[in-house]
Amino acid sequence: MPEIAEVARIVHFLRLHVVGKQIASASAIDDKNVFGKVGTTGAEVEAALKGKKQEVRESISVMHFGMTGWVHIKGEKTAYTNYYKKMKAEDITQWPPKFWKFQFATEGTPGVEVAFTDSRRFGRVRLVDCPGDEIRKHSPLVENGPDPVVDLDRFTEEYLRGKMRARHVPIKALLLDQAMISGIGNWVADETLYQAKLHPEQYCDEFDESQIANLYKNIRYVCQTSVDELGDSDKFPEHWLFNYRWSKGAKGTAAKLPNGEKLAFITVGGRTSCYAPGLQKKTGRTVPGIKEEPLKTEAAPEAPKKSRKKSTSEFWEEGDPPAKKKKRTTSTKLEPNADKVKAEPAPDNDKLELGQRRSTRLRK
């Protein structure tokens, strides 16, 4: 899900290429999820865009990116390097891009072409009738908590302390609550707690004053740094958890950070957190039912093994047909004499007779 840094990245590109320009043409599809679930239609969004000048003080639409929503500008790579590495060359240059929901082009030379895309359709685009500088006084933004980068007059250490003392939930859950703080999602929360050396599932009202002060400092640090870099993870500090958290279950990956700390994943209520158990130790009660899933450790040099039978894939790689190999099964219970049954193809007449019996039963 796009988090605070990703939103900052999109805002950067829109300000750079779109603000102050007149929209010459616009189109939108009638997606009942993206538009319909927030009370509008593609036709209404299209009509609201046409002929409008995009100014900071003028608001036309509010976009919630959901899981896969994004804004693309023709000729610009508004996403990240890894995003484009997974795409075919023709898909990168295709315009409008796949899964577009609305698009528009500006007047002038050169004109700018913009498209909002969402492959999984969890994003939402709605119209809000108010000046742009008042948008946060209206739903849905009015329900959100302060931005830890922009709203420093509201997001203070005292504010954080008050929220933590007033509730009895895991600290990770509190950080993810958009009504408490805006823009913190899964990886930002994990990074913040790793930097603050706090256990993600410890109850938020069981931290002392120094831990709360440290948490506040690291929320500001992680959010500000990621926004300053426009979410470009290639520029994140080398010591960040972000650079190592994505290897869960990958064969041959190291379960350690450069400082030697081991990583693990814990799951509570269906939500997974990455943390360093040797560093982020409990200092109070934690939520019950934690399921820990350690990452695979670095492979140690293997001792010589006894000869073994080759797998089917190994036979094929060497050109040796696996005709005599028995198919392995994961079942621990076999039928009597199952190993004596020969797996031979049925004669054609048997297949025909079976088909006739099935046909007869259907007619009856």
Rank of each mutant, 00 (worst) to 15 (best):
P2F: 00
A5P: 05
A5V: 01
I10W: 05
V11D: 02
V11Q: 10
R15D: 07
R15F: 11
Q22H: 12
I23V: 15
A24D: 06
D30W: 00
G39F: 14
A43L: 03
G51W: 05
G51Q: 08
K52S: 12
K53S: 12
K53G: 11
E55A: 08
V56A: 14
R57A: 15
E58F: 10
S59G: 07
H64T: 13
H64F: 11
V71G: 01
K74S: 12
T78G: 06
T81D: 05
N82F: 13
Y83W: 10
Y84K: 04
I92H: 05
Q94T: 15
P97R: 04
F102N: 05
T106Q: 02
T106I: 02
E107D: 10
T109L: 15
V112P: 15
T117Q: 04
R120E: 04
F122W: 02
V125M: 04
D129K: 04
C130F: 12
P131C: 03
G132T: 01
V149A: 07
F155H: 15
E157D: 12
R161M: 12
H168I: 12
P170L: 02
I171K: 07
L174Y: 03
L176I: 04
Q178F: 06
S182G: 08
S182H: 14
W187Y: 07
T192G: 08
K197Q: 13
H199M: 05
Q202W: 00
E206S: 14
E206L: 10
E209T: 02
S210G: 12
L215C: 11
K217R: 11
I219R: 07
R220I: 12
S226C: 15
S226Y: 14
V227K: 00
F236G: 10
L241D: 14
Y244Q: 06
W246I: 12
W246S: 13
G252L: 12
T253P: 01
T253Q: 15
K256R: 14
G260I: 09
S273P: 07
Y275N: 03
A276Q: 01
G278N: 00
G278I: 06
L279V: 08
Q280A: 11
Q280F: 00
K282W: 02
G289W: 15
K291I: 02
K291L: 03
E292Y: 02
A300C: 09
P304C: 04
K306S: 12
S313D: 13
E317S: 11
P322K: 09
K324A: 10
K325F: 04
K327M: 09
K327D: 15
R328T: 14
S331W: 03
T332S: 12
L334V: 05
E335P: 04
P336H: 03
A338N: 06
E344K: 10
N349V: 11
K351H: 00
K351T: 02
R357W: 13
S359W: 10
